[in-house]
Design a protein around this nucleic acid. Structure first.
Length: 766
DNA sequence: GGTTTGAAACTTTTT
DNA sequence: GTTTCAAACC
């Protein structure tokens, strides 16, 4: 395959430039992923670079997955030697191997933001800090920014001087970090920060990775923070083969510590750097592009560039302002329906983008009513749902009981009669002895002041022991089933028989599927092509599924974010999550001053820079659209139970009039007032619209697994991945699944659930 | 020790 | 409007 086919001059240049630092300024829709993947293939095929010398870093799992796929296609044999990963997973892999040099255990756990919050809350209580005055959130964000800037607790303490608040933060920071260390836990920021620390402290490790990653590529470079920059800088400092791709106009993560100067000053950091600009857009119509250019031109301090396209002019951008947010949702859902009917645009070609997650609600209700399939991306993370976290806490406890947080979470879930007082006593005991919470439980009889409670604690500890021994011979999916069974977790939910409980059960089913999928990903027998490495750089890729491995994967995945291509649904998400995606038909909803740009940014102490960030976000939104773009606003909407009246977003006014269909400031109000029904918009909204009478939704929930059909019965010979072959002795029908009892030839009698045991029927011989 | 109730906070964006 | 948290009650 010709790696230069269909590439324009600049793209070819970027692919061909393989040595030394390279900055690719890639405007929206300019084909940067293609450049990155082709460049990787070129490195290997034409330049003789070994795959294991290449590292490609992205921010999201989705981006990494996409790139992996395309690289695999291009490179073929040996491509799995290339590291294509997110910053976080790259660091985890490195730390899993070497973090013991920093005094942590290599089986560390990763705390998510919920866990962080719990720790900070705990710390505040311990230090008797009045959280009315100084909010936990404030501490968390201060700690996070400090870590992003590579400032450790000691350093922070030195810097804070006499400022009371700063001193408090320093104190909390130190305590927080100690707590994490004691639990052998790392938060997200630690993953990056400690990797940098490791590189700085241990020349040997740094050297190893510098040798390993001789060619580095970083995607979405404009969103890197100081720690990530340092990480990359250290890795690249030896061979200098660093290629970064980014677009300063799409930097939208300042709130998370992204340092836009990493890209603006790249040539300063790497004086040898070559700069290539990709300015031809292959995605959008001229009209959409003009609008995007006009908006972003209002920002100062940016690298000058002007996107152009050979695409046709296209239709004007539709703009509509409505009286209420309900009408807005109604209009958009109708428009999507109509475009499907009249132009044959499938639902999955349409996306609704908004500033805040809360806005998705109205659309969701509207779509359910109208029978239009939809999918909301983001919002509440799957893995931060209560029921999921509970079960994961069990798994963590089984896997690594030094995670105090996990143990405390489940010690009384389901109710075991272990209350706050008992937990507090055990906690104090653990603290005094400097042991973990779980270790304290193991010696419950030593804890002063416990009478009957000690026995209950013992019971819990034994339960964990039992699970541990079972875990050794069970698949993870089976272990989860076992936890359901032994704790009665599912039964309890079933007894509730509410819609909510039903949804939780579905989620738990989903979790088991996740575990099963994780396990299956190892059973692919494509192992036969034994790595033909040069000896030094094969390593650490786990060869079989482990509990730790599963927990880690889960910790680093933001959501079940597969946009499965086979189903046809409208996609709803925030502007932030839309970065990197494209859709033929895009709606930017809620374009109102106070919502977008947000009230926070307008009233902040530094409105100019905050507004510029919002404007970049707007730019990202506009440039997601390929053919059709619709911008909507509402005069009135409920936010937090309060009705707000908002003007049309200033960003809309920055789009030249000629590009818009629909008036921005005119007297449309009167027109509409006459049309609008006199009753409240809300009541009108409740009715099913005229355009949908049949076609009711079935279920849009992401998939409760259908009841399965068994191809074996009692007395049949079956085989199991782990236990080998055996004979089925009983099949019990349960609500969602069958419980199958099998007498295995080698492993004894086991009870298992058919859905996950994946038993295969054998011919009579066995 | 567990459950119920009412008030208060919450919302910008996420690996 | 929704969720979280603590106090009061059982």
């Amino acid at each position: 395959m010709d790696l230069f086919e269909n590439l324009n001059e600049q793209q070819q240049e970027a692919v061909r430039t393989v040595d030394g630092p390279l900055l690719i300024i890639a405007g929206a829709g300019s084909g940067k992923t293609r450049v990155l993947t082709n460049r990787t293939a070129y490195l290997i095929k034409e330049h003789g670079v070994a795959p294991w010398h290449i590292l490609a870093v992205t921010f999201t799992n989705k981006a990494a997955g996409e790139m992996r796929e395309r690289i695999d296609d291009l490179v073929g044999f040996g491509s799995d030697g290339i590291w294509v990963a997110t910053f976080h997973s790259t660091c985890v892999r490195i730390l899993r191997r070497f973090i013991d040099r920093l005094g942590y255990g290599t089986n560390f756990t990763i705390y998510d933001s919920d866990d962080q919050k719990t720790v900070v809350k705990d710390v505040c209580k311990r230090l008797s800090i009045d959280t009315k005055m100084l909010k936990e959130r404030m501490f968390l964000s201060a700690i996070s920014s400090a870590k992003d800037e590579l400032i450790g607790p000691e350093e922070y303490e030195k810097r804070c001087g006499n400022d009371y608040k700063e001193q408090r933060i320093a104190r909390v920071y130190r305590e927080y970090q100690d707590t994490l260390k004691k639990s052998n836990a790392l938060d997200f920021d630690d993953l990056i920060r400690l990797t940098v620390e490791l590189f700085k402290l241990d020349k040997e490790v740094l050297d190893y990775y510098q040798e390993k990653f001789r060619y580095l590529m970083v995607d979405e470079y404009q969103d890197t923070n100081t720690a990530q920059f340092e990480l990359i800088r250290l890795l690249a400092s030896k061979y200098q083969n660093l290629c970064v791709v980014g677009d300063d106009d799409q930097s939208i993560y300042k709130f998370r510590g992204a340092n836009i100067y990493n890209i603006l000053n790249f040539e300063h950091h790497f004086p040898e750097a070559k700069v290539i600009k990709l300015e031809q857009n292959y995605r959008s119509t001229q009209c959409i592009l003009d609008a995007a250019n006009a908006v972003i031109a209002h920002n100062g301090s940016r690298k000058e560039k002007r996107l152009w396209t050979e695409n046709p002019g296209g239709e004007k951008i539709t703009f509509r302002q409505f009286d209420t947010a309900y009408e807005e949702a109604e209009y958009i859902s109708h428009d999507i329906w109509q475009k499907k009917q009249q132009k044959g645009i499938p639902y999955c070609d349409s996306a609704i983008l908004y500033r805040t997650n809360a806005q998705s609600r109205l659309f969701e209700e509207r779509f359910i009513n109208a029978g239009i399939p939809y999918k909301i991306i983001g919002g509440i993370n799957f893995y931060s749902r209560r029921e999921i976290k509970d079960i994961l806490a069990y798994l963590k406890t089984v896997d690594n009981a030094s995670d105090d947080l996990a143990v405390k979470r489940i010690i009384n879930v389901p109710k075991r009669g272990i209350g706050a007082t008992t937990i507090a006593k055990a906690d104090t005991f653990a603290m005094e002895r400097g042991i973990t919470f779980f270790e304290a439980l193991e010696q419950a009889e030593e804890i002063p002041g416990l009478s009957r409670a000690a026995a209950k604690l013992k019971g819990f500890v034994n339960f964990i022991y039992v699970l541990r021994s079972k875990a050794r011979e069970m698949l993870i999916s089976e272990l989860i089933e076992e936890i359901f069974e032994e704790t009665g977790y599912i039964r309890e939910l079933e007894a509730e028989s509410t819609e909510e409980a039903e949804a939780r059960i579905e989620n738990l089913d989903e979790l088991i599927s996740k575990a099963a999928a994780y396990e299956e990903s190892f059973s692919d027998p494509e192992e036969d092509e034994e790595d033909l490495d040069d000896g030094d750089f094969t390593e650490d890729r786990e060869e079989r599924p482990t509990l730790s491995g599963f927990l880690e994967e889960v910790a680093l995945v933001a959501d079940i974010d597969e946009l499965s291509a086979d189903s046809d649904y409208v996609i709803l998400m925030t502007l932030h999550s839309a970065k990197g995606l494209e859709f033929p038909n895009v709606y930017l909803a809620g374009m109102e001053d106070g919502l977008f740009p947000s009230y926070m940014s307008i009233t902040s102490e530094n409105p100019t820079s905050e507004l510029e960030e919002e404007r970049r976000l707007c730019y990202v939104g506009i440039t997601r659209a390929m053919r059709y773009l619709t911008i909507t606003a509402a005069k009135m909407r409920m936010i937090r139970g309060e009705t707000q009246y908002n003007a049309v977003s200033r960003f809309v006014k920055e789009i030249p009039h000629g590009l818009l269909d629909g008036e921005v400031r005119s007297a449309r109000t009167n027109e509409r007032a006459e049309e609008a029904p006199s009753q409240s918009a809300r009541a009108a909204y409740r009715q099913t619209p005229y355009y949908l009478t049949q076609n009711k939704p079935k279920s849009f929930s992401s998939g409760r697994t259908e009841k399965i059909v068994l191809d074996y019965g009692v007395g049949d010979r079956v085989s199991h991945v782990k236990f080998g072959s055996g004979t089925v002795t009983a099949i019990l029908e349960g609500g969602r699944d069958y419980e199958v009892t099998v007498a295995f030839d080698g492993a004894g009698v086991k009870k298992m659930f058919a859905m996950f045991a994946k038993l295969k029927k054998l011919d009579e011989k066995g």
